[in-house]
């Protein structure tokens, strides 16, 4: 099909998940800074940032494209610790 949901899109992508996360979101910083922008929630092409009612963020690194958009978009110093996964791990594009 041409039109697809985000879940259907993500199912086409191959990930080799590393044991340790390459991106860590400090939910306390999100909450304590009262970040109202919540840029990460909108821009992440993998939709990995889930806003919590208490102002925090639930994040899972496993299906990440390693694009860097979240750390560019987040303007709260220290909320996102970002690095690349270990060599050979993470996303592996086959077609793009």
């Amino acid at each position: 099909m041409v039109m697809t949901t985000h879940e259907e899109k993500m199912r086409t992508v191959r990930f080799r998940v590393a044991a340790t996360p390459h991106i860590v979101v400090d939910s306390e910083v999100c909450r304590d800074s009262g970040c109202s922008l919540r840029a990460c929630v909108y821009v992440c092409p993998a939709n990995l940032f889930v806003p919590l009612d208490d102002g925090g963020i639930l994040f899972n690194y496993e299906q990440c494209f390693e694009c860097g958009t979240c750390y560019i978009a987040c303007n709260q110093e220290g909320a996102i610790r970002w690095s690349y996964p270990d060599g050979g791990y993470g996303v592996t594009f086959r077609e793009s």
Partner: peptide
């Protein structure tokens, strides 16, 4: 655009800056 992509099937989704 719709008529150009009609009947095509998603193979891979990706993103990059």
């Amino acid at each position: 655009v719709a008529p150009l992509v009609r009947g095509a099937k998603l193979r891979e989704y990706s993103a990059h800056l």
